[in-house]
Amino acid sequence: MILKLKRTPGVYIVGFMASGKTTLGRMLADHIGWTFSDLDAEIEKHENRKISEIFDERGEDEFRRVEHELMRKRVRAIECGRPTVVALGGGTFARSENYALIENNGVSVWLDCKLDVIEQRVRGNSDRPLARDPEKLRTLYQERREYYALADFRVEVCSDSPVENLEAVLSLPIFH
């Protein structure tokens, strides 16, 4: 395991919505014996409402404020030595204040999933407020790729099989 990961034992799974971050993150955590955390689920629990409701009732800026606050809390726990695999929301890594926390407190892995696969997975899902407009979804996908490219590692999601995608992540040098 690389020194950076030993110093702050956090693996952050980043990528666009519906790229498989939660599924793969949970599987990875189980495989390596670490705690798993889904940041979006933490936000929903903290706010006692769905993310789509937060967006609709209070707007994206308020959602991002809460997201950052909970991200800071999660990173503090990791800094205290609690090894955790964290599945981030699709926009978390694209915000500089979150990127700085992640960059200095663990290793980031980008699940790079093709747009046509994303579109198929989110079609008709009203729980994803930023996926409601197909054209905006495509634009957002392209805009966020430059941020995801800052991740420490990139894994191309070539399969709908979570097991195959987990194998691809486990082949990264951080797990050898």
Rank of each mutant, 00 (worst) to 15 (best):
I2Y: 14
I2L: 15
K6Y: 13
K6P: 01
R7Y: 11
T8Y: 15
P9R: 15
P9E: 14
V11W: 11
Y12I: 13
Y12D: 14
V14P: 01
V14K: 04
G15Q: 10
M17G: 02
A18Y: 06
M27C: 01
A29H: 00
A29I: 00
I32D: 00
I32F: 00
W34P: 01
T35N: 07
F36D: 01
S37M: 12
S37L: 15
D40W: 12
I43Q: 00
E44A: 05
E47G: 02
N48R: 15
K50M: 11
I54T: 10
F55L: 08
D56N: 14
G59P: 10
E62G: 00
F63T: 12
F63D: 08
R64Y: 03
V66N: 10
E67R: 10
H68R: 12
M71H: 00
K73L: 12
R74L: 15
C80H: 03
C80S: 06
P83F: 13
T84I: 00
V85K: 01
V85A: 02
V86K: 09
L88I: 00
G89P: 05
G90W: 06
G91N: 03
G91E: 02
F93D: 02
F93P: 07
A94Q: 03
R95E: 06
R95W: 00
Y99R: 05
A100D: 13
E103V: 04
E103Y: 14
N104T: 14
N105Q: 05
V107K: 06
V107T: 11
V109Y: 05
W110C: 06
W110R: 01
L111Q: 04
L111C: 04
D112Y: 07
D112L: 04
D112C: 11
K114T: 09
L115M: 13
L115D: 10
D116P: 04
V117K: 02
R123A: 13
G124Q: 09
N125C: 09
S126G: 08
S126L: 12
D127Q: 11
R128E: 03
R128Q: 09
R128M: 08
R128F: 06
P129Q: 15
L130A: 11
L130Q: 12
A131K: 10
A131W: 10
A131S: 15
D133C: 11
P134T: 10
L137A: 04
Q142P: 00
Q142K: 15
E143A: 08
R144I: 01
E146C: 14
Y148H: 08
A149G: 06
A149C: 03
D152M: 03
F153M: 09
C158H: 13
C158P: 01
P162V: 04
P162M: 02
V163Q: 15
V163D: 13
E164G: 00
E164Y: 03
L166I: 04
L172S: 11
P173I: 04
I174T: 09
I174S: 10
H176F: 10
